[in-house]
Nucleic acid binder design. Sequence first.
DNA 1: AATCCGTTCAACCGCCGTCGA
DNA 2: TTCGACGGCGGTTGAACGGAT
Length: 350
Amino acid sequence: MGHHSCCNKQKVKRGLWSPEEDEKLIKYITTYGHGCWSSVPKLAGLQRCGKSCRLRWINYLRPDLKRGSFSHQEASLIIELHSILGNRWAQIAKHLPGRTDNEVKNFWNSSIKKKILSHDIIPSFTTISDIHTPYNIGFFESFFPNPNLIQNFNHHHHQDNLYLPTSSQNLQDNFHQIDTKVDIHNHLNANFLHIQNPMPQIVQPISNPLPCEDTWPLNCETLHLNHNLLQNQVSKSDVTPLNKLMQQYDHNLVELETFFPKLSDHSFEDYVCSILDSSDSKEHEAPTKFQCYTPSIIYPQDQNVEVIHLDNIDALMSSSFPSSSSQIVTNPIIPLGWEHDHRFKSQLQS
DNA sequence: AATCCGTTCAACCGCCGTCGA
DNA sequence: TTCGACGGCGGTTGAACGGAT
């Protein structure tokens, strides 16, 4: 067990802090500031290591800490941020004034994650009336509009690899709705950007397009983030859940492009990163070019593709970039046959 | 009343990046 | 350039607590 160098030089106490120790630390820091943490314990008369003092102050004694339970708004914000940033608790905590990374992490691990994982006990269901969970179908629906996707999610999520695209408002509702049953098929929110779940088993050898069911929402429009803070927190190389998803397909570009057919000559990863990492674009200015993949369904017989959803990319972008124009997708390269889709017609005419 | 068990969360550990000598 | 000190971070642990049996 290695200890910090500052801890080796002196006999240090460990474990819970006593009120007397807290008082000493508060008195010292409010008088002198912490300065070099390694010197704090000696100067404050504490038999602790500097690191322990720092942690105690940051996580517990700081006067600007907000104590008490997390609000619904904070919970939904944490989930939203976690879907983007992954387990970067310090980054997430920066968006929650008065909350520490430790607090956010504990809240996630003890509350949010547990609630989500608890739904593993429901393998599948075919009708709404089959669903009886403490959080009602709305809780699920906020993550997965299609029950089939819960199975896919069960395949996909791992202990530390949760990726939960969601709707903040739905989630907030679900923290206090207990018994309401919701018709999930009426809750396919048109204001979502839909990205097809890339699980191979959902690509079915049929001759007609599937309805809009094999999609999952990636809703950013209710994100109330400090954009300046967020924009530098995600990059392609970061190990976020989204990047993990992309890395999963990096080794097999053919497979990737099967599930995310191109509309332009840019990669899906570029498209995703263009949303998440706006560092290339000027602040408060929408990107001039939006690399665009669309969700699709594959026809194995002829390898043609069909667009399911393209409606709300601009909604997503306009929410992510406060002053963005409504014309986000520019000069898309429309695959053969797609030009008949009314959503592309408007693009081509403009 | 005693024990067990699950949950919460404060605290610790180990690693990494930065900085200055 | 190297190395040690330090701060910061995420993962993990274990004491404390409360509910169930």
